[in-house]
Computed example of a mutant assay.
Amino acid sequence: MIRLLVAEDMHIVRSALVALLDGEDDLEVVASVARGDQVLDALATTTVDVAVLDLEMPGGDGVSVATRIRREVPGTRVVILTALGRPAAVRAALAAGVDGFVLKNAPVDDLVDGIRRVAAGGRVLHPELAAAAVQRGDSPLTPRESEVLALVAEGCTVRETAQRLSLSEGTVRNYLSVIVDKLHARSRTDAVNIAQGNGWI
């Protein structure tokens, strides 16, 4: 019997997951929580083989919780479940040592089979997600360009960005022009969206 913990903040989704997983002969949900900061407490009192974590939930996202599980409860395997297949999220999850990454819109069998494979010591990652994560790769921006774009993302004007980084306004505009070109963006706002979506800022 594979003992599971399910962490999902949406009650209906969590209840459905628990019912679906409990319906399998070899799976048993022994704990379910609504927040990331409740996961480690549950693992401290219950033996769990695989933790199924929502990527985005209050009290700690799936990746940060997975990092803590790896450190504090290394015997528990982790599957991230998400509606968002962003390459940056996949890379962060893999870097955290997550064993599986399954999309919420995948067939139920994909999740069930993935849990079984992870429990047996394997890893699960949808081929399209793996390809996207590799193709996007590392940020094309220099550290200084990343600093400039991060401040713009915070809502800073060119003048404020220049003051914060001790640069001239002209230099900041030049950086932004280069950034837009590098990211093949339509505008500064588009550049921010692209960089954030890939986890580059």
Rank of each mutant, 00 (worst) to 15 (best):
Q135I: 05
A7M: 04
V63A: 12
T45P: 05
G60N: 06
A42W: 02
A93E: 09
D110C: 09
D113E: 14
A133K: 00
A83S: 13
T45D: 14
A44N: 08
P143N: 14
R173G: 14
L84H: 13
F101R: 03
A7W: 02
L21K: 02
D190C: 13
V13D: 07
V192Y: 06
I201G: 15
G100F: 00
M1K: 07
R188A: 15
L94G: 13
S168P: 04
G62S: 13
A120E: 07
D9H: 11
W200T: 07
G197R: 02
D41C: 14
E154K: 11
Q38S: 14
D9F: 09
Q135V: 11
S32M: 08
R86I: 01
F101D: 07
A51N: 06
V172K: 05
R91V: 00
R144W: 02
G197Q: 07
V102Y: 01
I69R: 04
A133E: 06
V73C: 15
A93T: 03
G59E: 08
D54L: 08
A195M: 04
V102P: 04
V79F: 09
V158K: 07
L94F: 02
R3T: 14
A88W: 03
V33R: 01
P140R: 07
V98P: 04
R91Y: 09
R164H: 10
N198H: 13
K104W: 01
L20A: 15
V73W: 03
D54W: 00
G59Q: 04
